[in-house]
Design a protein around this nucleic acid. Sequence first.
DNA 1: GGCCCTGCTGACCACGCTGTCTGCTTTGGC
DNA 2: GCCAAAGCAGACAGCGTGGTCAGCAGGGCC
Lengths: 334, 334
Amino acid sequence: MTRATIKDVSRVAGVSIKTVSRVLNKERYVSDDMRQKVEEAVARLNYHPSLAARTLAGRRSFQIGLIHDNPSPYYIFNMQAGVGQRCREANFRMIIQPCDINSPGLVDDIGALIDQAQLDGIIMTPPVTDVGTALAELFRRKIPVVRVQPGTDLTATSAVYIDNVQAADDMTAYLISLGHRRIGLVTGHANYFASGQRLTGYRQALQRAGIGFDAALIHPGQFDFQSGAAAAEALFALPEPPTAIFASSDEMAAGVLAAAHRMGISVPDQLSVAGFDDTDLAQVVWPSLTTIRQPIRDLGYAAADLLLEFGETIERRQLPHELIVRGSTAAPKG
Amino acid sequence: MTRATIKDVSRVAGVSIKTVSRVLNKERYVSDDMRQKVEEAVARLNYHPSLAARTLAGRRSFQIGLIHDNPSPYYIFNMQAGVGQRCREANFRMIIQPCDINSPGLVDDIGALIDQAQLDGIIMTPPVTDVGTALAELFRRKIPVVRVQPGTDLTATSAVYIDNVQAADDMTAYLISLGHRRIGLVTGHANYFASGQRLTGYRQALQRAGIGFDAALIHPGQFDFQSGAAAAEALFALPEPPTAIFASSDEMAAGVLAAAHRMGISVPDQLSVAGFDDTDLAQVVWPSLTTIRQPIRDLGYAAADLLLEFGETIERRQLPHELIVRGSTAAPKG
DNA sequence: GGCCCTGCTGACCACGCTGTCTGCTTTGGC
DNA sequence: GCCAAAGCAGACAGCGTGGTCAGCAGGGCC
C-alpha cells in the first residue's frame, strides 16, 4: 500500500486536481458542494499532501527555522515548545539548527540551511541574534526574521522581548524593600545584551532608593553554575560583604547557594539570593529561588506568531515578566 | 539574485545535469575529470541542492524524525544534540516531533508526519517506545525505526540502551559497601520499563549481600521533583527509616534532598542520597549528587547511527553507564 | 575482426503539487 | 433584457531533482 496523492483524492471526489489543491490551500472560489466532496475524499483516503511537492511547486515550504546557540537545556526546551506549538496550529514544521557563534562556518551553515530547506522564515535566540555577519546573510536573502531578545539593531527585524531593565529594577527594588543595602550583582556573559540592561535596572533601583553604587559589588559571570559560585566567593571575601546577591540567571544563583552552603552561610538568614529566568532549577534547589519569571515558552510562541502572521513586515512585541518570591530571600538580620 | 540550481551548475561545469547529480550522490561511473569540474562549479556557485526536489524525485528525503514525550528538558536537549550531530555528519536533517502518549490522535499525528515529510527513519524515546499502536503504525509503513531504551518487543526494532539492571545493582552495591543496610528506593513511572529493571538490579545487589528485601522501603515516584520529595517524607516516617535513599532520577533525588533540608536531616551525615542519569541538575544541587551517568547524548548519536548505517536491518547496541560518586553519599554514622 | 563486457555520459521522463490562463456559468445594475 | 463583473472549475506547464535507458568508447576474449 502506497500513500495517497492528490490524484487519488481528485479521482475519488470526482473533481479536478486543481480543485483539490484549492480546498487544501483554502483558496477562494470553491463552492461548498465541491469543498465537501473533497474533504470527504481526503478523510477517506487519509490523505496528507507531500511537503516536498508543495515546496517545489509553490512559493512556500511550510517550514521555519529556529537557530540557537544557547547552553541551557531549559531555555531551548521551552523555546522549542512555544515555537512548536504555534507551528502545529498553522500546520507548519520547525527545523532546529544548533550552531556555534564562534565557528567561522556559521554564515555558510545558515545559508545552506535556508537554501536546502527553502525556509519561509527564521527565528533566532541570543546570542546569535547579535552576530552581524549572520544577520547580513539573512537580509541578503530577504527572508523574514524574528529575533528573541535582540541586543543590537533593534529596528532591523521583528522581535519579541521582555523589559530587562524593568525586571532587574523590580528585583533590586524588592531586595531593597526587604531592608538590604549592600546588594551584590552577578552579571551575565558580555555577549548577551540583556546583561547590560539588567545592570541598568539594578542601578536605577539603587538610585531611586538613594543608595550609592559600589562597583565592587558587581561581579561578571558566564550564566553558568561555576561562575556563580566563583562570584559568590569573591563577593563574600569583600571587606564589607553584601547581605543579598542578585544573579542574572538561576544557574548562577544555584552556584551562589552552593558556595554559601560550603562556607556555612545560611540562606536566607545570613544571605538572600535571587535568580533570573525561573527555570525549573529555581524550584529544585534548596531553598527554592526568588527569581524573575521570564516567559520563555510564550516568547517562542510569539516569535512564531509574528513570523506566520506578518512575514516580512517588521513587528515587535513585549511580553510581561513577573517577580516570583520564594524561600531564598528574607530581610537581613540585625 | 536567486539561488543556484543544478542546471546552473551543469552549465558552468559544461556537463549534463545527470552528471552533476551523479557527483552529488557519489554514484559510480564518473571520471575524475568530470568530478573535479562539477565540484569546482558547485563551490563557485555556492550551490546547495534543493531538499524538496530530491525528496520528490528520489526515494530518500534525507530527513529523520525524533519522536518524544518526555518532560525532562535535560534529556531532550542531550538526545537532540546526539541525534543532531550524527545527522550533520551525514548531511541529514532532524525533525522533532513532541507528542502526548495519552492523546487519541497520537497514531494519526505520527502517520501524518511520515506522510508529509516522507521521513527516511524514526527515532523514539521512552515512553513512546512502548506504545503498541504507534509501533504498529510504523510497521505498517515499513519505515526503519530505532528505539532508545525500549521496554517491550525488544526484538521488534533496532534499539540502543544501557544495562539498567546492572546500573541499579552497581549503585545499590556501592551504598551497601559504604555500610548501609536499609536503603530506600524511589522507583520511576510505571510507564517506563526501566523502572522495573532498576528494581531488579536493586534486589539483586541486596540478595548478593545477604540483606533481606523490605517492600516498605520501595516507594513509587513519577521521575519528578515533587514525587521525590513526597517519597522521602513517606520513607522518613517509617518506624525504621532508611539510612540511604536511591532515587531513580536526579530530579527525584533533588526532591529527596529538599525534603531532608526541610526536616533538618543533614546530607550525607544522617542520610545518603543517590540519583540516576547524571543530568546537569546533579552538580547544581547541594550537596552534589552521587548518581549513575547515563550517556544520553551518546545514546542519541548511536540511535541515529544505526538508522543511517543499517536502515531496516535490525541492530542493537548497548552503551556503558558509569557510577559517579559525589558529595551526597557517605558511610552511615554510628 | 566480431563479440561482449565494463566504464562512462547524456536525453528524457516522472515525482506531486501550485500558478497561470482559459472558459463557462451565474449575478447584479441599468 | 442586455452586458459587465464576479464566481467557479479545469487544462496545462513547470518547479529541481533522481531513475531509466540508450549510446559510445575501449579492452579482452574467442
